[in-house]
Design a protein around this nucleic acid. Structure first.
Lengths: 362, 362
DNA sequence: TCCTGTGATGGGAGCGCTCCCGGGAGCGCT
DNA sequence: AGCGCTCCCGGGAGCGCTCCCATCACAGGA
């Protein structure tokens, strides 16, 4: 009845115009469905000759197994979901997410998983769509990022059985898997750097305290100041929203209180702060010196080039999927917490201190 | 045997800890699998009372149909694939892609489709993964963007039967569906604007000629100049790669030939051009005036704020999925080409010409 | 020789849905 | 009454795979 047009296929090369099934391939190779399945999935024992014969037919026909059937039968979809909740669309102007997605995508590709993206623009959309993500069998696991403190999504995930890992430190310590940059350590290092340079009136342009990055970078910064015996003058602190504009406004807010130096909690905000300083006629680093956080390309091309705490964003993305896959396979068990290290990159925004490697700064 | 634990469910609220099937729901509501399917999909005729009863059970149990089974039976997956080929990772520092993805995601959500992202980092990855995208039944259709001229991916797509739409003008006119910004018209308008301002030595910092945007913006620009009887001095033209850095380099290349004005083919490149001019000690707009393309947030916050040709990126994304869905449903038939309009936004980078609406500029 | 173990293979059952057909009930018409 | 039509509803078949068990051939040990 349904005769597979193998000869057609052969002449057409790999293009799979005709849909084949395991059964078709089996018939062509003179074996059963089961055997074909075994070679496709490279499991179970198949004799070398048969394996080769089957593989030949697969290549000739360009056969690709149907994922829906596979999902249905195996109860695994082979897709991981990346969930980015509402209210962060503004953050999308920050290159951070682009890099994160790149890392996650690359790791997914490597693992043969496909990546589905769930960007929720509003909370109602979130509520409407979220159940489907979690319990339709669409995804094998979820990566959750940009979650706010007390995120309802994380609550739902914790109640359910779907494996997930969050990017950024969750506010329920010890109960969920996550990967996060060393925000505390990085910010601390930034503070120490500024102190070492002899500054004492050091300002802080912060990230939102509704995010773990906001909380942790503040804490690290205060830690660093304390270690040097320096206090943060409250009038020298203003928080932003990760956006360029918010950095601009924050700088305007504190500038009249005469900071000698400032730590800005994100490169993108630092771009705004720099713009504000240009407007105000202040030169960086002569009049005020600046350290920021992220290490995005913009920090390298700004005027001046920024001294910044670099975090390996793509690597965070990669690790998150690797951990998720471990959870899925059962390789790793409990909640795993991974902190990826940050690194202070010294450039021009703190004076002529761009030092060759190995040289100490006073 | 498999007794659905409804009472449990009820006490737990919506959370679907236990997996139900159509059959389960049917049993609980005293109807058949088929009837439940009809109310879930809102198709076929069901009496109001029965519909209500079934809906009640669905809500109480938090039932979500299994997507794999649905795909298998219906031969539709409900997911659309967004494919971004290799070599454009650099472009990810451009906020363009973020916005595009936002638009595509929003439209997908609205349509109840899920979005899968295929970012290929290398060509080998591309070749390895692409067949799966196209012929595993994973996706119902594909949106292809950032495709270069002569993209092999588009060839594969054209040979196959999977519906697809490309974002950007494809190099095979009339044969594939696409949505594109009015690059020609926008660039033309930019040129006219510069001419109207009385400039004749107008430079051009272009996008790569391997992209349709590069080709079309150049053409529009030249059209505009021609309409004013102005020629483009070849020494005033340099092409970039959409990146900030490439804009910086391009400006350095042409500056010594003394342009009075310049059209830059993307906002991100314009940021680099601005940086070069700052370094060179040239003031914008006093010494040189600038118009760019895209209308990203950065064009508004740069110093000076840029006059730019705004293109509605998110809308392009939205339209691409709407068209794809039309193709899928069979509402629309042939290849459809949609050009979304651009708009010149006058700001500070061309002098004090920010004019109230309706006022003519000399 | 018989028995057991192991590698290689085939095929039944079933995953949870959609599609389609068939049948019963109710209606209005001849 | 009889007919045809529409509206509802139920259930069979089947989507293409995985999982599991049965089978067979062949080897080696008692």
């Amino acid at each position: 009845m349904k005769v597979p047009a193998v000869t057609n296929e052969t002449s057409k090369g790999q293009s799979a115009a005709v849909k084949h099934t395991l059964e078709d391939i089996g018939r062509l190779a003179g074996v059963s469905r089961s055997t074909v399945s075994r070679v496709v999935n490279d499991q179970g024992s198949v004799s070398p000759e048969v394996r080769e014969r089957v593989q030949g037919v697969i290549e000739k026909t360009g056969f690709i197994p149907n994922v829906a059937a596979r999902s249905l039968a195996s109860n695994r979809s082979g897709v991981i979901g990346l969930v980015i909740p509402s209210r962060v669309h503004s953050l999308f102007e920050d290159p951070y997410f682009g890099r994160l997605i790149q890392g996650i995508s690359a790791a997914s590709n490597d693992a043969g998983q496909t990546l589905s993206l769930f960007l929720f623009q509003t909370e109602s959309e979130e509520e409407r769509l979220y159940p489907r993500v979690v319990s339709s069998g669409l995804v094998d696991g979820v990566i959750l990022t940009a979650s706010r403190m007390g995120d309802p999504l994380m609550g739902t995930l914790m109640e359910g059985t779907l494996p997930f890992v969050v990017i950024g430190r969750p506010d329920v310590p010890g109960r969920v898997s996550y990967v996060d940059a060393d925000n505390v350590g990085g910010a601390r290092q930034a503070a120490l750097h500024l102190c070492e340079l002899g500054h004492t009136r050091i300002g802080y342009l912060g990230a939102p305290m509704s995010t773990s990055a906001g909380v942790d970078r503040l804490q690290g910064f205060l830690d660093g100041l304390k270690a040097c015996g320096v206090d943060l003058d409250p009038s020298l602190r203003a928080d932003g929203l990760f956006s360029e504009q918010s950095g601009y406004e924050a700088m305007h807010k504190i500038y009249s209180h005469r900071p000698e130096a400032v730590f800005v909690a994100s490169d993108t905000m630092a771009m705004g702060a720099l713009r504000a300083l240009r407007e105000l006629g202040a030169n960086v680093p002569q009049d005020i010196c600046m350290v920021s956080f992220d290490g995005l390309p913009s920090s390298e091309t700004s005027t001046p080039a920024l001294t910044t705490v670099h975090q390996p964003i793509m690597q965070s993305g990669r690790r998150s999927v690797e951990i998720l896959l471990g959870l899925l396979r059962g390789d790793v068990s409990g909640p795993v917490a991974e902190i990826v290290p940050t690194e202070l990159v010294v450039r021009d925004s703190c004076g002529s201190l761009r030092r060759p490697a190995g040289t100490e700064a006073g």
